[in-house]
Design a protein around this nucleic acid. Structure first.
Length: 462
RNA sequence: GUGGGUGUAGCUCAGUUGGCAGAGCACCGGGUUGUGGCCCCGGUUGUCGAGGGUUCAAAUCCCUUCACUCACCCCA
């Protein structure tokens, strides 16, 4: 007695049947088309890295890293949670050698697509394995790079047929300035840096919990003194209120924010960068309605150092961020000790797929790549059926020969219909005698009798 | 980590105050067999998530546990 293994699948990991696979493949092709138009070169990095590569010095960010348990390696391994960290590792490992002409010549723009892994508890639109399609520009601090990234985000969403979305833009430098303005400094054994991160995390919740709750959380004194709560004074909270209450169009917001941050250099620098990005976007004809300065956007990953971007679907805000990124000038430093400016973004392909699916914006009608199926009606004619199939394949028609067990017409006919195949080739005793075939279009229900000699030209015209 | 929900046939699920374990799909056999997803007849399919308790009797009530799932948190 064999043991039955249940056909179970771990939560947060997806199967893709043909209809879904083909629809997602279409998405990936459209995304890649836009990315290539900006000159991003394709590369690939492995599904497994050293844990220390991904986690860095602090294991803080590593809380949702997918660890690998059994391995013959002494050094612990793990699965990448994004493509950016392996990219930084790749940059550090391949410096350009002018003499040998090897390594990576900077500045460099590269794209990468593949699964990434997070050990979160899965939920709808949140997976433990999902595809990210990433672009990054390394080796330049120019805001042209950041503007190109935002332009690419806009064009990609458009290419995917999405109309209602918003790219929210902010700058970590502005938020760092805010921390100074709010008087955040080292406290006991907690660094100002960690407290600032916690402040950003709270700000990021603005659209969910509202300004009053945000200010309340910012002023809260934690029970655990080790917790990096901002614990702001009422006075500081008021400054944050006026910061979060800034309204107007993008230019006005930047102007008003500038007044608020009078004398805070780091924030002024951040605002200057944002305004430069907006200017470049204008040159690239990116409509202003799609790009919005939002000072509450912080981004969860702590390697960002400058502009940050986040895309949300206006019709499906519940799915959260689908296409996000930012500038990370210090990530390569982890591996080389020296900063290397870089900026980029990443589309959460599977989450966007789920969201568009939810909105009914995906065409999942295609169930198969087969264009023609040859029916096998006569028992002794398999060689001729195979010949016809080869004839069609030679001219680039995806052709399958019926593998349905019985040679009844109805069984094979219904099989072709249920598989969603467009054409069937019918060739029985009658046709063999006349050296013709019947070609039936199952979509239009029209049938034509074609002589065997004309079969190729018939399909080439189609 | 916190709070809901669900576990019954290969799949989707029904199962009444506790009283023989069910349907559809799928699958197998037979009939039909050259034009639209059939149709007709027959058949197989169960550790009712697991363990314990109450009871003459538990899928059903109670306790424990596990798995899955949704929401919060966080993120793509």
């Amino acid at each position: 007695m064999e043991t039955i293994v249940k056909p179970e699948r771990p939560g947060g990991f997806l199967d893709f049947l043909p209809a879904d696979y083909l629809a997602r493949e279409d998405m990936l092709k459209k995304i890649e088309g836009v990315y290539r138009s900006f000159g991003f070169d394709p590369i690939e990095t492995p599904r497994i890295e050293f844990l220390k590569t991904l986690a860095g010095e602090t294991s803080d960010t590593g809380k949702n890293i997918f660890h690998i348990k059994s391995s013959q390696d002494d050094e612990p391994l793990a699965m990448p949670f994004d493509h950016t960290v392996p990219f930084a590792r790749l940059l550090a490992a391949n410096p350009y050698d002018a003499k040998k002409r090897t390594g990576i010549r900077l500045p460099w723009r590269r794209m990468v697509v593949g699964p990434v892994f997070r050990s979160d508890t899965p939920q709808s639109g949140r997976y433990r394995q999902f595809y990210q399609f990433d672009v990054d520009i390394a080796g330049t601090a120019s805001m042209i790079a950041d503007a190109e990234i935002v332009a690419l985000m806009y064009l990609t969403m458009k290419a995917l047929g999405v109309e209602n979305f918003r790219i929210k833009v902010n700058n970590r430098k502005v938020l760092n300035g805010l921390a100074m303005l709010a008087g955040i400094r080292n406290r006991d054994r907690i660094s100002a840096d960690d407290i600032t991160k916690e402040m950003m995390r709270i700000l990021d919740k603005l659209d969910k919990i509202g300004i009053d709750q945000v200010l309340k959380e910012l002023q809260a004194i934690p029970e655990n003194p080790e917790f990096p709560a901002p614990g702001l004074t009422a006075e500081a909270a008021e400054k944050i209120r006026s910061f979060l209450s800034l309204r107007g169009d993008n230019i006005q917001k930047i102007g008003r924010c500038g007044e608020l941050f009078h004398g805070v250099n780091i924030a002024q620098e951040g605002l200057e960068e944002l305004s430069r990005i907006l200017n470049y976007l204008r040159s690239m004809d990116i409509p202003e309605a799609y790009v919005e300065i939002d000072f509450s956007i912080a981004r969860g990953l702590d390697y960002y150092t400058g502009p940050v971007f986040e895309t949300v679907l206006s019709d499906a805000p519940g799915f959260g961020s689908v296409f996000s990124g930012g500038r990370y000038n210090d990530l390569v430093k982890r591996f080389t000790g020296k900063s290397l400016p870089a900026t980029g973004t990443s589309i959460g392909v599977d989450r966007l797929f789920a969201a568009l699916s939810h909105l009914g914006l995906l065409d999942k009608s295609r169930q198969t790549v087969t264009e023609v199926m040859i029916l096998r009606l006569e028992k002794d004619r398999d060689h001729q059926y195979l010949e016809i199939a080869s004839q069609l394949r030679r001219i680039g028609i995806n052709t399958e020969i019926s593998m349905v067990e019985d040679n009844s017409f109805k069984g094979q006919f219904n099989y072709a219909i249920s598989r969603g195949i467009k054409f069937i080739v019918i060739c029985g005793a009658l046709e063999f005698e006349k050296e013709t075939v019947q070609v039936k279009n199952l979509e239009t229900r029209k049938q034509e009798e074609i002589s065997r000699a004309d079969l190729e030209t018939y399909f080439i015209k189609k």
